[in-house]
Amino acid sequence: MSTFPERLLEGYQSFMTGRYTAERQRYRDLAEAGQEPHTLVIACCDSRAAPETIFDCGPGELFVVRNVANLVPPYAPDSNYHATSAALEFAVQSLKIRQIVVMGHGRCGGIKAALDPNAAPLSPGDFIGQWMGLLKPAAQQIQDSQLMTGGERQVALERISIRNSLANLRSFPCVKILEDKGKMALHGAWFDISTGELWVMDPKSGDFFRPEPGLA
């Protein structure tokens, strides 16, 4: 019989004697009153780009949705299973979150797969291939560019995917209506794993820039 991962048990013990002890009352308050996170972050499931760590947030501050390549699918009210859409619906309609951040990152494996026309499915279901099909039009345009290096193509699609997800967010009535009323704000961000740099998207131009401390 397999045993629970020892590294996780060690981490839990460290958590209980460290952070939990220091924030015991906060956890109790969250348990009693429920959660009231201030921001929904849609991020990649890459283990190197955890939003809670990057933004140094404590328990109850962020409502985080993570999937391959931080994609948001378009609004599709059908009988299929929609995990990201369900989480978005809960965040906006139930938790009343009014700040949404789509955060991509450098060296994203999902984006790399989307740019490789010869990538073989990892399984008969080809779940990653189908999921990354959301970016197929953009990926094909970038693949055809002979003026960019492989690294430039990667970063370009990582950032284009953020803008694409923001556009898809606006296809959800619950988001679009609130944004049009000035009650919802959508943001884009890109994190460079190798340097720790955070780039945020200008909402008007779509360009990414590094915010100065205190001016973000």
Rank of each mutant, 00 (worst) to 15 (best):
P173I: 07
R19D: 14
A120R: 13
S47A: 15
T39D: 09
H187A: 01
G110T: 02
W131F: 12
D180M: 03
G58I: 07
I54A: 00
S85P: 05
T195M: 03
A86Y: 01
V92M: 09
R159T: 13
T39N: 09
P77D: 11
P117S: 09
V41G: 00
W199L: 15
A49M: 02
G104S: 02
P124Y: 09
R163D: 07
E6D: 12
I128Q: 05
L8F: 15
Q140M: 14
F127P: 00
C108T: 03
C57A: 15
N168F: 10
D180G: 00
P137K: 07
F209V: 03
S194P: 04
L88I: 12
W190I: 00
S171G: 05
A167K: 15
D56W: 02
I54Y: 00
K204N: 08
E89M: 02
G182N: 05
H38P: 01
A185E: 11
F4G: 09
I100C: 00
L157S: 11
G182L: 05
I128N: 04
Q99S: 08
D116S: 11
G151K: 01
G11P: 08
L122C: 10
I100Q: 01
K96E: 14
N168V: 06
C57V: 07
T53A: 12
A139I: 03
Q143N: 14
P137G: 06
S165N: 04
G109Y: 02
S205I: 03
D29K: 11
R28M: 13
K112F: 01
L147V: 12
T149Q: 11
S194W: 01
V65D: 02
P137C: 07
S47E: 07
F90E: 01
R26I: 08
P5S: 11
A216H: 12
P173Q: 09
T84A: 06
L198C: 04
G125F: 14
R19N: 13
G60M: 05
S94K: 08
P137Q: 07
P124I: 08
